[in-house]
């Protein structure tokens, strides 16, 4: 601590090791002529000096620029980080039912032990992980494939791109209606398609073992256009010469993509994967709209839906908050490394 104060003092004093001239300045005595030992004109105003000191510490525009970013940053910080911390606190209470406010006097980890003992929670957590991994991997692969196909210098490129990205512009609530219809047992397309191969009919949303994968498929439909756009931008950044050099070296098309082009898409893959995983965690809207209620189809419960259901349907506020913290931890596990990666690449 003493070291901290010394540093603070040094930061605030305009010229270190020159106390005398400072005192003179504070006394309001005007010193004429160039003062060789004080590099700045003595500031008479303490706040002005503090401002200058802060500027020197943080960079020349720090104070002047703070008016631009600080208020929005605080608003955002309050709503995001303030709320997360508050949520953590609530998860340690026993807040439930129609109590007006949580009782913060008695904090414990009861809600977390309760979660571990709740098979519904474990199922939801497993489902969340399956959804995250399959959805992200599948969407990336489809997106990459589409991007490569579209980037082969085809005609109507824009039209194809527009069509592939179209589902992305729709709300989960809307696309859920479409997929409900597709997965309809009697009249849905899904069953008529597999019916032509002599299979089915399958109860896509009723069968506990299938429903999660049916939902993942629907989500892939909605988001693969996004992955395609990201990959397309990545592909466009690769100079044409790389393709030509690989061709000249005698690589087949497949080899060229595998060995030369795809490795260069690492950055695009990482950022797309992060966004997709986060979207996957937010898949709540889709699941809610499938049933029009807090309980998603059996076998497709994920942490995001369980959290909202516990809190808003069952009024187990504290328990919901605890589940939310687990979800937050998962998100952090994805975002943290990503941000460090971006920082290292100087991309922030």
């Amino acid at each position: 601590m003493p070291d901290f104060f010394r540093r603070l003092h040094r930061t605030i004093s305009p010229s270190s090791g020159d106390d005398e001239s400072e005192v003179r300045a504070d006394g309001g005595v005007v010193s004429d002529g160039p003062t060789a030992d004080a590099p700045t004109e003595p500031d008479r105003d303490a706040t002005a000096r503090l401002k200058a000191a802060l500027d020197r510490r943080f960079g020349s525009d720090f104070m002047e620029s703070s008016i631009f970013w600080l208020p929005p940053f605080l608003l955002m910080g309050l709503f995001v980080y303030g709320a997360v911390i508050w949520n953590l606190l609530i998860s340690l209470t026993d807040y439930q039912r129609f109590e007006n406010a949580p009782d913060y006097s008695d904090l414990d980890f009861e809600m977390y032990t309760r979660a571990l003992a709740d098979s519904g929670f474990i199922d939801a957590a497993v489902n969340t992980l399956i959804l995250l991994l399959l959805f992200t991997a599948g969407t990336l692969m489809v997106g990459l494939l589409l991007a490569i196909l579209i980037d082969r210098g085809i005609r109507f490129e824009n039209s194809f791109r527009t069509i592939y990205l179209l589902p992305m512009s729709l709300s989960f609530v809307v696309t859920a209606q479409f997929w409900l219809w597709i997965y309809n047992y009697n009249n849905g397309i899904a069953n008529s398609v597999i019916g032509t191969f002599g299979l089915g009919p399958v109860s896509w949303l009723g069968n506990q073992d299938i429903v999660l994968y049916a939902i993942i498929f629907a989500l892939m439909w909605q988001f693969s256009g996004y992955a395609m756009v990201v990959y397309l931008a990545g592909l466009r950044a690769i100079p044409r010469e790389h393709y030509e050099a690989a061709k000249v070296d005698g690589a087949s098309t497949l080899k060229m993509y595998w060995r030369v082009i795809i490795p260069q898409l690492k950055g695009a893959t990482i950022s797309a994967a992060v966004v997709l995983m986060v979207f996957g965690m937010k898949a709540f809207d889709f699941l809610y709209s499938l049933t029009g209620g807090y309980r998603p189809p059996n076998g497709a419960d994920i942490l995001a839906t369980k959290m909202v259901r516990e809190a808003y349907a069952n009024l187990n506020w504290a328990y919901g908050a605890a589940i939310a913290i687990v979800l937050f931890g998962m998100a952090l596990g994805v975002i943290g490394p990503y941000l460090v990666y971006e920082y290292r690449r100087d991309n922030l």
């Binding site: 500027d55 510490r57 943080f58 960079g59 020349s60 525009d61 720090f62 620029s65 970013w69 940053f73 955002m76 910080g77 709503f79 995001v80 980080y81 303030g82 709320a83 997360v84 508050w86 949520n87 609530i90 992060v274 966004v275 986060v278 965690m281 937010k282 709540f284 942490l303 995001a304 959290m307 909202v308 809190a311 506020w317 919901g320 908050a321 589940i323 939310a324 913290i325 979800l327 937050f328 998100a331 994805v334 975002i335 941000l339 971006e342 920082y343 922030l348």
Partner: peptide, 27 residues
Amino acid sequence: WKKSYKAVVLMLIIAGIFIPYQAVLVP
């Protein structure tokens, strides 16, 4: 202003994009 301080603010802001909203609902 100093890049390293900017980076901290930016990281907090960017992380804010990815926060699952469930984590802030009850508060």
